[in-house]
Amino acid sequence: MTLLGRSNLEVFPLSLGGNVFGWTADRDASFEILDAYTAGGGNFIDTADGYSAWVPGNSGGESEALIGEWLAARKPSGITVATKVSSHPEFRGLSGRNVRAAAEASLKRLGIETIDLYYAHFDDVETPLEETVAAFGQLVADGLVRNIAVSNYSADRIREWISISQDAGIPLPVAIQPHYNLVHRNDVEESVIPVAEEFEVSLVPYYALASGFLTGKYRTTDAAGSSPRAAGASKYATAEGLAVIDELDRIAGEHDASITSVALAWLRAQPTVAAPIASASRVEQVADLLASATLELTADEVQALDAVSEWSPASV
């Protein structure tokens, strides 16, 4: 287990992504995946109020509702539930009133009294940041939320959030959720990680497997239409991207591990990263996710993956 930022949340170093629940994983598959993850020691479940509103026939909140149903049925102990606000069709944006209403709706769907980790999902430039920060602070004060977090915020906006919190005596964010993986590195490493290091905030990266590309499954752009997620993965199947897969494959052979496990282990080895997020649409995929949490790469292996995935620094 690892501590999340300055919080007292002890979480498994691989967070189970709930974006597929109600999308590519139906109720039975979702229950099997959650059962397998927790049976393997996992305790950190990530979702959002907007999952999965993009699916025809869905209206948002399906993932939270399935997780809530599972929690009620299994009654597991020690589970950390993270969810997010701003993307549900009925609760868009981060106005104070909306943050409160969305949190109450999430609590009802999840069937819990307190959200362990509550993210501002996407920055809302239409709402004064002071209003958003105050709303999150009030949720903590009222016992609806234990810890505050941000997702998809720029480094400058994270600093601004922290400054407002410090001035107002509101608890600081304990986690940042950025898009970060072996084929998407530059902005996070150049700007977000320095902020996380300065304020002792943990990273909980999403798209940790680049929409499945870093599982090694998609090695050609011809896969684009083969599944709901394949289009997002196949765009990485360039010469440079496939070189990353080849190196992952080599290192996986040294550890008798999967490419998936190695890609997640590399991410976990990065500064301030506490727990990458990865999802599974089938229960058979869970074992590789769990294995990544205990796979320790050598310094040479991390360096080799750093080199093959080297990027162009952002312009100053």
Rank of each mutant, 00 (worst) to 15 (best):
G212W: 07
E113F: 03
G111A: 07
E254K: 15
A230P: 03
F31C: 06
E284D: 14
R185M: 12
D246M: 11
G143M: 03
A265D: 03
V140P: 03
L4R: 00
L16F: 08
H88Q: 04
S30T: 14
I251D: 01
T132S: 11
V195A: 00
D306L: 02
H255M: 13
D187E: 15
L9C: 08
A208S: 15
F91A: 05
L248G: 01
I112R: 13
I245R: 05
N147S: 12
V244W: 14
G169T: 08
N19K: 06
L203N: 03
H121V: 02
G111K: 09
F31I: 06
T215P: 01
V283M: 05
S163K: 13
S234H: 08
A72L: 08
L144W: 01
R157N: 14
G225K: 05
K84W: 05
F12A: 07
A314C: 12
R159D: 10
R109Q: 09
S234G: 07
K235R: 12
V204S: 02
E113L: 01
S154N: 08
V81E: 03
V244H: 14
L34H: 07
L172S: 10
A39F: 10
V283G: 06
L3R: 14
E254H: 14
W23S: 02
I259R: 05
V20D: 02
S52A: 14
V286K: 11
D288Q: 10
W266I: 03
K235N: 00
H121E: 02
E240T: 06
F122G: 00
A231W: 04
A269L: 09
A105F: 13
L129G: 04
I251Y: 04
L4H: 01
L110C: 09
V150R: 14
Y37L: 06
E104N: 15
E240F: 01
N147D: 13
T114R: 15
L71D: 12
R250E: 13
Y153H: 09
